[in-house]
Amino acid sequence: MDTNYWISLKQDPDRFKSFYETASSDDVQVYFSTGNFIDLVKAKEQDLMTKIIVAIADKVLPPTPEKGHEFYVSDYFLDIVPDDEYRATVRREISDLPLIDILQQAFRDSTWSATDEYFVGMEQTRDLIEEWGHDNLKGVAFEDYLKRRGDQYVLHEHEVDIVEYVKKEIYFHRVLMMDPNEAVKENDVADMLVCTQAILSDCDMLLIEAKWANLGLVEAVTENIDGETELEIYKDFEAFHRELRGAVANT
C-alpha cells in the first residue's frame, strides 16, 4: 500500500478495524515496503503508526539490491531498516524487546533524505530521454545485454536481471511521465520504491496514489515482464478493500 493509505488507518479507526479483520485472514499477506518506512521516518505519531504496522503487516520488503534474479520477502521486521550498521546495532542491543518497541526505536533513530545526486540525476535523465528517447536510453542502461544483429544492436530484455530491470524501468517511466515544468520531488523516491518492490515481490494487489494509477506507471513496466501473478492496481481504498474481502470470501 502507498504510505498515505497506511496513515489513513491511523486517522480512521473504523477503517482500521474493518481492514484489520480482513487482513487477519490466513489467506491474506500484507507487505510493508522499505518505501513506506522511509516515508514514515518523517511522519508524526510514529509510535501509533508502529502499532498499526505490527497489527496489519505480515511481512516486510527489505531494501532492494542493485541487481539479481530474485527479491526476497522477509518475516523479520527489522530487515526493513535501510541502514545495515544500524540494523546490526539493533539486533545486538535491543533485539530482546517486544517488536513494537524495537520498531518504535528504529523510527525514532532513523533519518532519510534524497541525495543531491538524485535530483541532479532525474533532471539529467529527463534531458537525455527528451533528446534520445526511452529506447535508446534503455539500450545504454542495459548495455551489457545488447546483442549485435548485423549493423544494429538489439536488447534482449528477458536476459536482464529482473531486479535491475524493474528498478531502472520504473525510474525511466517516471521521468517519461513528468510534465515539462514539473519539479522533482523527494517523496517520488519512496513511491517508486513501493511500486518496484510490489512488482518484484509478486504480490497480487497494489493500492497506490491516484497519480501513479492514472499514469499507469506500474503497468508500463509489467507489460514487458512475464510474471507468475498479475498485479492489480487500485487507487481507492474502499474499492481495494471490497475486492480483497471478496477474494477472501471466495477462498
Score class of each variant (00 low, 15 high):
2 D>A: 09
5 Y>P: 00
9 L>T: 00
13 P>K: 00
18 S>F: 07
19 F>M: 10
23 A>R: 10
25 S>Q: 00
31 Y>I: 02
36 N>A: 10
36 N>P: 08
38 I>Y: 03
48 L>F: 08
49 M>D: 12
51 K>L: 12
59 K>Q: 14
69 H>I: 08
73 V>S: 13
74 S>L: 02
75 D>H: 12
78 L>Y: 09
79 D>F: 04
79 D>H: 10
80 I>K: 03
80 I>M: 05
82 P>N: 05
82 P>W: 06
83 D>T: 07
84 D>W: 05
87 R>S: 05
93 E>Y: 10
95 S>A: 14
98 P>R: 07
104 Q>Y: 01
106 A>N: 07
108 R>Q: 15
108 R>T: 04
109 D>Q: 12
109 D>F: 01
110 S>N: 09
112 W>Q: 09
114 A>K: 02
114 A>C: 07
114 A>M: 04
117 E>C: 07
117 E>T: 13
123 E>R: 12
124 Q>A: 11
126 R>G: 02
129 I>P: 03
131 E>C: 04
135 D>L: 10
136 N>R: 14
137 L>N: 02
137 L>C: 03
140 V>A: 15
143 E>Y: 12
148 R>H: 09
150 G>C: 05
151 D>K: 10
151 D>I: 07
152 Q>W: 07
153 Y>N: 14
153 Y>H: 11
156 H>K: 11
159 E>M: 08
159 E>F: 07
160 V>Q: 08
162 I>A: 07
163 V>D: 07
166 V>I: 06
171 Y>R: 04
172 F>L: 15
176 L>T: 10
176 L>A: 09
188 D>S: 12
191 D>S: 06
191 D>T: 06
192 M>W: 03
192 M>S: 14
196 T>R: 02
197 Q>K: 03
199 I>D: 01
203 C>Q: 00
205 M>S: 03
208 I>S: 08
209 E>A: 10
211 K>R: 15
222 T>V: 00
223 E>D: 13
225 I>G: 00
227 G>W: 00
235 K>E: 15
236 D>S: 14
236 D>K: 14
236 D>L: 09
238 E>K: 11
238 E>T: 13
243 E>W: 01
244 L>P: 01
247 A>F: 10
250 N>F: 11
250 N>G: 06
